[in-house]
C-alpha cells in the first residue's frame, strides 16, 4: 500500500498488567472506510485508545502521514487532524446543543478564524439540531446525539476519523442515516476507521475490512472479500453469517 494515512507497527499495550494488543500491525489506506471486526476481547476499541494516546504502550510505533505519533496527547492528535468518537453517548447532557458543538473547536489553532461560521454550517446541515441548538443536549434523541458527536468531530476538518460502534443503540433507520454521513465524508476525502459490532452492515458500506483477534491482525482486505470469507463468518460473525455461507 503506497502512502498510507495511518500505520501501526508491532504495537503492544494494555491496561495495567493485562496486555490486550500483542503486536498489532496494519496500514490504513487514505480516503477509504475501513471497518475493524473481531470477537469480544480482540482489542478493537483498545486499538483506538492506543492510536489516540489514551493507552500506555510498551512497544511499537504508530505513524500518521509518515510522522511518528506514538504517545502524542489527544490535543496534539486533534491538531494533527485525527478525531476520535468513542463508543456510547459522548455528549454533555446538561449543556446546550450549541455549546456541545463548540467543544469540537477546543483544539483549534489560532490560524482557524472561521469557527463561528463552521458551527453555523454544521447546524445548517442538520435542521433537527438547529431547532434544538439552545436546548439541553439531553433533549436530543439517540440518533441526533450521534449526529451531534460526528458534527462536533468535523469542526476541525479532520483527515482521519476513528469511530467506535456508531450504530450502538440506534434504530436500523438511524444506523443507515449514520452510515450515510460516514460515506459522504469518505467521498469528500476523509479517511474513516471504524469498529462495529454490526459487522455485516458496516462491511457492506466499507472499502476494506480488518479482522482482529487476540490483539493481532489476522486478515485485511477488500470489505466484500472479508464479508464473504467463510473463515471470518465462522470465527467472528456468529451462526447467522455461517448459515448464509
Amino acid at each position: 500500500m503506497d502512502n498510507p494515512i495511518l500505520e501501526l507497527d508491532e504495537v503492544v499495550g494494555g491496561y495495567g498488567r493485562i496486555t490486550i494488543l500483542h503486536g498489532t500491525s496494519f496500514r490504513v489506506r487514505r480516503g477509504a472506510i475501513i471497518t475493524i471486526i473481531g470477537p469480544n476481547g480482540a482489542g478493537k476499541s483498545t486499538v483506538f485508545k492506543a492510536i489516540f494516546g489514551l493507552l500506555n504502550l510498551s512497544s511499537g510505533t504508530i505513524r500518521f502521514n509518515g510522522t511518528d505519533i506514538t504517545g502524542w496527547s489527544p490535543r496534539r492528535l486533534l491538531e494533527a487532524g485525527i478525531v476520535y468518537v468513542p463508543q456510547g453517548r459522548n455528549i454533555f447532557p446538561e449543556l446546550s446543543v450549541r455549546h456541545n458543538l463548540e467543544f469540537g473547536a477546543v483544539a483549534a489553532g489560532p490560524d482557524i478564524t472561521d469557527m463561528p461560521a463552521r458551527i453555523e454550517a454544521a447546524l445548517d446541515r442538520f435542521p433537527s439540531l438547529r431547532q434544538k441548538a439552545d436546548q439541553q443536549a439531553s433533549t436530543l434523541s439517540g440518533g441526533q446525539q450521534k449526529q451531534l458527536e460526528i458534527m462536533r468531530g468535523l469542526l476541525l476538518d479532520p483527515k482521519l476519523i476513528l469511530i467506535d460502534e456508531p450504530s450502538i443503540g440506534l434504530s436500523p433507520l438511524l444506523v443507515q442515516e449514520t452510515f450515510g454521513i460516514l460515506t459522504d465524508l469518505r467521498n469528500r476525502g476523509v479517511t474513516i476507521l471504524m469498529v462495529e459490532q454490526n459487522a455485516r452492515s458496516a462491511l457492506e458500506m466499507s472499502d476494506e475490512g480488518l479482522v482482529l483477534e487476540l490483539g493481532r491482525t489476522r486478515m485485511q482486505g477488500p470489505a466484500r472479500e472479508i464479508l464473504h470469507d467463510p473463515r471470518v463468518a465462522q470465527l467472528f460473525l456468529g451462526g447467522a453469517m455461517a448459515e448464509v455461507e
Binding site: N90, I91, F92, P93, L95, A107
Partner: peptide, 23 residues
Amino acid sequence: TKTGRQMQAAAQNPNVALVLGIP
C-alpha cells in the same frame, strides 16, 4: 465563558472531555 463550560465538561465526563482536547 468557554473556560467555565470546559470546567463543566471536565466534571461531567472527563474521558470525553479529554478526547475533545479539553485540558
